[in-house]
Design a protein around this nucleic acid. Sequence first.
DNA 1: CACGATGTTGCACGTTTGTGTACATTTATT
DNA 2: AATAAATGTACACAAACGTGCAACATCGTG
Lengths: 267, 267
Amino acid sequence: MAKLAPTVDRNALPEERQQRILARLRSEGRVVAAELAEAFEVSEDSIRRDLRELAAQGLCKRVYGGALLPAVTVTPLKQRRTEHPLRKQALARKAVSLVKPGQTLLIDAGTTNAAIAAVLPIGAGLTVITNAPHIAQLLLDREGFEVLLIGGRVVASIGGAIGAQAVEQVKRMRADLCFPGACAIDAAHGLWGFDSEETLFKRAMIDASDETVVVATDDKLGAVAAHQVAELARVQHLVVEHSADRATRAAFAAHGVMVHRAEAVSG
Amino acid sequence: MAKLAPTVDRNALPEERQQRILARLRSEGRVVAAELAEAFEVSEDSIRRDLRELAAQGLCKRVYGGALLPAVTVTPLKQRRTEHPLRKQALARKAVSLVKPGQTLLIDAGTTNAAIAAVLPIGAGLTVITNAPHIAQLLLDREGFEVLLIGGRVVASIGGAIGAQAVEQVKRMRADLCFPGACAIDAAHGLWGFDSEETLFKRAMIDASDETVVVATDDKLGAVAAHQVAELARVQHLVVEHSADRATRAAFAAHGVMVHRAEAVSG
DNA sequence: CACGATGTTGCACGTTTGTGTACATTTATT
DNA sequence: AATAAATGTACACAAACGTGCAACATCGTG
């Protein structure tokens, strides 16, 4: 039973062996050190060394007797939600001051945008379009908002729907103001995102809105990521923290962006 | 019943065994030490040690003879909004037992359905399609699920997206199992809803699924509302409370519906 | 070719971890 | 209160583990 096929795994080079171990792990969900040693015809010590290296790269989780697939707790979004509550709240208050009664807002997923949704004025007849379940739920709980949900495949690490279906829905909508979550923004190169699909969605948001507001914590300013969302010319407003560098603020203003500075926070 | 499949659980690595015990616990709501010892082919002592460790992490609650789900679920705050948390949890556990690994589920808005989402087994490769931001968020937080969000206008009183846009999206999807929230169900007249738009959406859900599971608290049984969602013939499974009337259960069974009765609740 | 550097492998050693058995204790049931 | 089942503790044993070391192959350089 064990050796129907004459074990293609023999005589594998070390790195090749690790690749095959990984493939085996991914297809079966677990690997046993003793079995691998037999299959590759090496000692269990070598297998253990392999597993050690794979584990160091986060590709497997070592357990007594072998290895399992790593726990899928890549980014606990729950924790991120409470990272800098006071700073984000100050940013959010300033951002909300740009909103006028009766407007339609397009709000992206993200912790900063959730903070904005949390302080939107009730009873101003606002319509909010969002791809983030968390933000939609938050607004439902507060009551007094018209909420339009963007559907599609929801990516846990982002906390909102992105992808072709989401983009298609946004294209059929129209908003006064949009708040694309910022991954990085730079005066020379514009707005950037980390993920390709995510970037396409943000782009669609901006296209569907009259004006764009970028709300950025200090660490986003001057940073550049992998995929460009839009030129800086597409951004009308930039909301920064009180602690944002004066020269940086001037650089954005020189490009025609209205820069709004949040109040200082006590904490 | 115990050993249809030749127990895939044999020869599990220690840590792997704990994971499987946890998965089993989450899907069935309880585990019995003796059964686990047999399934994994180890002594009960080892099982007890496993349960001890899981309990130390707060992942289960040890009881005489085995273990139960921890008294306060991982989402205490969110689930507290339900009216009868224990009763709905018992219903949910029974409902979840109908779900098989790898399936695609279509889950309607509603507190009972939220309870179901809260006890879906992690790591079973489930795909969940839902129109309720609350349920989507809950599954994102628990991690390990593929979540597809149905967009559209979100009605606060329902807690989910309904309307033409939502219906259109559902029509382009296909699921193994659907859980339409029940407003009323009657053996003679079928499934009913209160709101016209909501009813259309539920109907679309049922059309998009192979099988339909109706989970009904006692007050929904035998009741009739304003708009018909579907004939009883479209409903394959009905999950009722432990306290459900025997005659009522028989009436549904007579119409070819498989009736599942939840465990009794202590509180 | 000689030489050293580098990397892989298997083995021996002591250590850690998981498992089963024995016995005393607690718990549920009658 | 009596009884059987389940549990906790202590101990012994085996399996798996990490580490240090020596043997061997490979490769580049002088």
